[in-house]
Design a protein around this nucleic acid. Structure first.
Length: 585
RNA sequence: CGGGGUGUAGCUCAGCUUGGUAGAGCGCGUCGUUCGGGACGACGAGGCCCACAGUUCAAAUCUGUGCACCCCGACCA
């Protein structure tokens, strides 16, 4: 491609809307353009990157046995009601009506479509196992798009769905996807780690997220410093330190006027926060039944810990939680600021984290203004209901690893992909049955697997750039070679040779961006650095005289002078080597 | 949805406090000089100052109401 004829306009300064380096560089390099919050145009340069990423994903999915298809983004709302997610997806689902007022949705994901599709086509165990995938535009009405391509409302996802007869088959399908994901991210130059994850509104269990670790990540993960345990904090467990064996002491009241926070309480009584019990009050509502009254929930964790609301919600089967108001609390006889699990109104469901239940002689509220109780013990003075002592505290840096005696550290990350064993939630909802070898109807078990294509691009730039611009991994670079012609307008012979080299490189199978513009060397070099193609070739009168051209790798090293006659072979070899490294060959 | 911030030229911003009819740098066009790391000169194009409603002789500027975008939080297959 000749730059003089290309639709490409670099920016010297980044638009002020962009904060992350990767977002700024994608904008400055003329790769993307924002249309509105969370909606971007892929400009020609960015579009080439996107197609390369898609192709990398496609090849690896095919290699793993996936079969590509393409499902509609526009979907009837019926299927969302059939699965129950019309409610549970809530406001994230883009809804619309056609001219006959039929309710529809723009697909935020495709479990419903693929499962109803599979139901009408699959008949026999001979059709299984089957993994179907697509690369599709998804729509999610995100409350807060952010970070350029990181969280957007219209985006491209590769989503795959596996159908198997039994758990053992699902394991095979799942493992194949897991391996393919590793290869995809490696190939695109995006380092990821697989972490245990909450499966969220999609349902299912046993899910793993592939996280790209970065300061700008919106998820927090914890990792063990000794073993390979890693988990999203939404899901993470930690080792509760066994309490030293202590005899429960008699409770005693202590006056604590004006002490309604754990910090103030710990300071006033001279005890660590870990010797206190923290009460957090919620109202829980059922997203599937808006008419049902909100239920009061009282979560107790140790004073130094935070409630993991995701775990509480999952424990309560997907309810929505909101903080209880003081007015509501008083209606249940609760004194806000001095809340006590002791003698709580029977209508209030008490859920306790294991750590608080196992720690003796804690300071807790007395449910009287200005009063706390010392030496409160779970089991003697108060109790969560049967089955309501659970892991529901947030894992934090410095806590013990749940798997070994290591310590947890924390990092931020962006979710690049997610794989999980779905189970039969959807296949049952859509009445998928196939006949097994004995002629009996069986419901297949499903897995689902997603990758954010746009996020791969965002992460690749975030990971590979310097102060001058992008350093594209060779596998996803928009072009392979940046051919820079200096002073072509003043030297007809040079211009002719640059044209010839351009043609030779293209003929050799390289994608070339040829800067044939009438611009000064500084402008051209700066644009080349900004755009970040892996290889830069400079032709100039100076080099021409010596019979050489100059080759510069974007990722490292000094420029090399290469004999004009050898340059095509040299670049082909350099390109192959870079691709080979990323493919792990 | 709560909190904060910002809307003036394609981009980055000044002007707003103290109302008087629009500015800079970069970018863009033409011409000339330059030509290996964002050159220089001359001339030029380009703005419904986010929108609407007030106040005023007069509003980019003051007031109100919206809207958009960004950040933090809530939310998030």
């Amino acid at each position: 491609m000749k730059m003089s004829r290309y639709f490409l306009h670099t920016l010297r300064e980044a638009p002020s809307d962009a904060e992350a380096a990767g977002h700024q560089l994608l904008l400055r390099s003329g790769s993307i353009d924002q249309l509105m919050a969370g909606v971007y145009t892929y400009l020609p340069l960015g579009w080439r990157v996107k197609r390369k990423v898609e192709q990398a994903v496609r090849e690896e999915m095919d290699r793993a046995g996936g079969i590509e298809l393409h499902m509609p983004a526009l979907q009837p709302l019926d299927i969302w009601e059939q699965s129950g997610r019309a409610d549970s997806m809530g406001s994230v689902l883009f809804r619309l009506r056609d001219q006959r007022e039929r309710a529809m949705a723009l697909g935020p994901t495709h479990e419903e479509v693929v499962t109803s599709l599979f139901a009408s086509h699959a008949r026999s165990y001979r059709d299984l196992p089957m993994t179907l995938y697509q690369i599709q535009t998804k729509f999610r009405d995100e409350a807060r798009p952010r970070g350029g391509l990181v969280r957007v409302r219209e985006f491209t996802m590769k989503d795959a769905y596996s159908f198997d007869m039994d758990d053992a088959g699902l394991d095979v399908s799942y493992d194949a996807m897991f391996v393919a994901y590793r290869r995809i991210f490696d190939r695109c130059g995006v380092p990821t780690i697989a972490v245990e994850a909450d499966s969220g509104a999609i349902g299912g269990k046993d899910s793993r997220e592939f996280m790209f670790l970065t300061e700008i990540g919106e998820d927090v993960i914890v990792r063990c410093d000794r073993c390979d345990y890693a988990a999203n904090t939404e899901k993470a467990d930690f080792r509760r330190v066994p309490a030293p064996i202590k005899v429960p002491l008699p409770t005693e009241e202590v006056a604590t006027p004006g002490t309604s926070t754990i910090e103030a309480l710990a300071a006033l009584l001279g005890v660590p926060a870990s010797k206190t019990a923290k009460a957090v009050l919620y109202m829980a509502t059922d997203p599937h039944d808006a008419s049902a009254p909100a239920q009061p929930v009282f979560v107790v964790v140790r004073g130094e810990m935070q409630v993991n609301e995701i775990k509480v919600r999952n424990h309560l089967h997907g309810v929505e939680l909101r903080p209880m108001t003081d007015v509501e609390a008083r209606a249940y006889g609760i004194v806000p600021g001095y809340t006590s699990p002791i003698g709580i109104d029977a209508r209030v469901r008490v859920i306790a984290d294991r750590a608080v239940a196992e720690t003796p002689n804690l300071v807790a509220g007395a449910n009287r203004d200005g009063m706390h109780l010392r030496n409160v013990n779970h089991g003697r003075d108060w109790s969560a209901a049967e089955g309501d002592v659970i892991d529901c505290a947030l894992a934090e840096v410095g806590y013990g690893c749940p798997r070994c005696d290591g310590t947890l550290g924390a990092a931020r990350g962006i979710e690049m992909g997610h794989v999980f064993r779905l189970g039969r939630i959807y296949s049952e909802a859509f009445n998928v049955t196939v006949l097994d070898e004995a002629g009996k109807q069986r419901v297949p078990i499903m897995g689902c697997y997603g990758i954010g294509v746009d996020r791969i691009i965002a992460a690749a730039v975030e990971q590979h750039h310097d102060e001058r611009g992008i350093i594209w991994p060779a596998t996803i670079a928009p072009f392979d070679v940046h051919l820079v012609g200096l002073g072509l307008g003043r030297d007809a012979a040079l211009a002719a040779d640059a044209e010839a080299l351009y043609a030779e490189l293209e003929a050799a199978g390289l994608d070339v961006l040829f800067d044939d513009r009438d611009e000064s060397p500084g402008v051209k070099f700066n644009d080349a650095d900004l755009i970040g193609l892996p290889l830069r070739v400079t032709v100039s009168s100076r080099n021409q005289t010596a019979g050489v051209v100059e080759v510069q790798r974007r990722d490292a090293g000094e420029a090399e002078k290469i004999a004009r006659a050898d340059v095509v072979a040299h670049l082909v070899a350099a390109h192959r080597a870079s691709i080979g490294t990323l493919l792990g060959r």
